[in-house]
Write a protein that binds this DNA or RNA. Sequence first.
DNA 1: GCATGCACGAATTGGAGAGC
DNA 2: GCTCTCCAATTCGTGCATGC
Length: 179
Amino acid sequence: MEIGPKLRELRIAKNLTQEELADRAELSKGFISQLERDLTSPSIATLVDILQCLGTTINEFFSEDPEEQVVFHYEDYFEKEDTELLNKTEWIIPNAQKNMMEPIRLTLKPGGSTYRDVPHEGEEFGYVLKGTVKIHIGKKVYTAKKGESFYFTPHSEHYIEAPNSTGATIIWVSTPPSF
DNA sequence: GCATGCACGAATTGGAGAGC
DNA sequence: GCTCTCCAATTCGTGCATGC
């Protein structure tokens, strides 16, 4: 990556000469000149000093400022249907495993269920959009119907099922173990 | 495995000089 | 005179070999 032109741009924006910047960063003016022409590369410590003098941080300096996707559309979704367990999982935020939250829309056919998840770190939250679900956490069973929500820490084996009479659709948000 | 010494390259300095 | 570039010299960091 060429940092020289970017450094020069920042220095000029601050109305500083190479000598003034060198004084502030406790470096030589010759070295600043070489840096701006990409004839040499600074150590991390030196770059941090220079950027401090230019009123910025190393994070901002190297940030490419990518456009963050905020709104996700149906075509962004990834879905998987399990004909054995009678459920359909839609990852409504793609690649969310790397985020702090992993939201999915889960549709359970009558008598359908999720797979039995082993205990893990993190937290689980759900909101029932349609129907009724039974939440199995260890040996306990909780019921939540349309408009209700549930929240638990998955320290025991857990899964969700829909009664034989009705199916259900829920929004399910879990946090990965690393969080 | 750890400490020491050595060699080498990269980082940095600071004076000299060129261009405007 | 100010700003910038060039370049030789110095300092620093790292990898490698050697000995304990």
